[in-house]
Nucleic acid binder design. Structure first.
Lengths: 246, 246
DNA sequence: TAGTGGTCTAGACCACACG
DNA sequence: GTGTGGTCTAGACCACTAC
């Protein structure tokens, strides 16, 4: 029968079950990669309906502890995060991963001129005359699995200079090479959740947490030459930064 | 009857419903703070069982779009994030919020000596002789609602100097004032999910995404004088950093 | 007391994986 | 075919909110 945690008399059944499973996972009783008992078996073990078992498992999925695979079973996740350093000078996603010995692959899924949204106009500090910008979207993958979706925006004048370079992937170094001397990068990091579209791109569950790396880079002369954001699965990414006292 | 998105013939019902509601929320048809129709009514509207309606709503909750309140209803969330700047020189959580005109309140929930875990020993770079550290935990609140749980660790020699100061809250400025000249801060930002204990401290759902701000600060002479981590609800926090080219 | 969301059941059918 | 998870139903009871 199901045991009730004495400190919390009125915990719902599914929570009791998900907590018990959670402890076994954290404690290593169920090892990473290992399969949990089937929903039916868990129902037998805990003497509850399958619906309740499923609710408990949904909870574990939500906490990122397990993944379920239709037709196969529920498995303990093996997590390994990739760390991206916000270094100075700025490097690209790929360059930084390469520095860590991780081979990544960026595939451009879109590159072209679009009408600038008010928000992008603001972020690129466009003059009222400029209505279009270049937008580049790419999927960054490590091995077979996609880990990030990057969207970058460039003013037309910048985009035209870089157009063919962008096909093979944007790097901060490219900007530098083409005479845009980078002076400053403004970055914000926050968290959002996957909507159905993003969940397909990044191969995560709907509602799964995503890290949002939002950036704008400036040169001495030109002002802002690029902005954009990189969305990545929060379970697979981690950002680091070192601040040195001036 | 329920409409099927033509581009995706086999979307499950609950997804169709949650997507339709999502669009209405994003589009402002349901305004922030507004109540959605009751589960019963939504079942009537979409001609599905209450279970399916509930699954759709669970989806929206997962995406951070709505919150449900027992006995009252389901409401569209009004989100407003607090931005914390990783500035140079380092400031404390409270100081930075104050700079933005936000009044915060830190209450120390624990302060004392503990046995250092291997991980903390490593992070503080303790010598084999040092087995204890000071640990300080505090809840940072804005208004009535808790937004972050901070845990800081200090080597004994540092903690003893600061002990009474720590009661009223740790700040980087305090360290400076007591002769620990800060030289460098190493920071990582990542995302985790609330377990039942954290969900109580931070008043979020179990499994809700949390931002983890992990830090270690060094002085010129002493090496690492503090490390710790700040956990905050990912829906309410956002970190920013500016990198200037040397 | 009426209305709301929260939990739980038993059972049905479907889609996918594997031998 | 058998076993697995995924979707969905109809209905029950509980806990909380508001009047």
């Amino acid at each position: 029968m199901v045991r009730q945690d004495l400190s919390q008399k009125k915990m719902p059944l599914y929570l009791v079950i998900s907590e018990e499973l959670r402890e076994k996972i954290i404690g290593g009783e169920y090892a990473p990669g290992e399969q949990l008992p089937s929903e039916y078996d868990l129902g037998e073990i805990f003497k509850v309906s399958r619906t309740t078992v499923r609710k408990a498992i949904a909870n574990l999925v939500n906490q990122g502890l397990v993944t379920s695979r239709r037709g196969k079973g529920v498995f303990v996740r093996e997590s390994s995060k990739i760390t991206l350093a916000l270094s100075n000078p700025l490097t690209s996603f790929e360059a930084d991963l390469a520095r860590q010995g991780i081979v990544s692959n960026a595939s451009t899924i879109e590159l072209g001129k679009i009408q600038a949204s008010p928000e992008i106009r603001l972020r690129l500090n466009l003059s009222p005359k400029e209505s279009q910008v270049y937008r580049q979207r790419q999927i960054i993958s490590v091995g077979e699995s996609p880990i990030a979706l990057d969207t970058a925006y460039f003013p037309l004048e910048v985009g035209e200079v870089l157009a063919e370079q962008l096909q093979s992937g944007f790097t901060y170094a490219t900007l530098d090479r083409y005479g845009f001397t980078l002076k400053r990068a403004e970055i914000t990091l926050e968290c959002t959740r996957a909507n159905p579209q993003l969940s397909k791109y990044l191969n995560v569950a709907i509602g799964a947490p995503l890290l949002v790396y939002e950036y704008a880079v400036r040169t001495v002369g030109e002002g802002i030459v690029a902005c954009g954001e990189t969305l990545s699965s929060a379970d697979r990414m981690c950002y680091s930064v070192v601040l040195d006292r001036d």
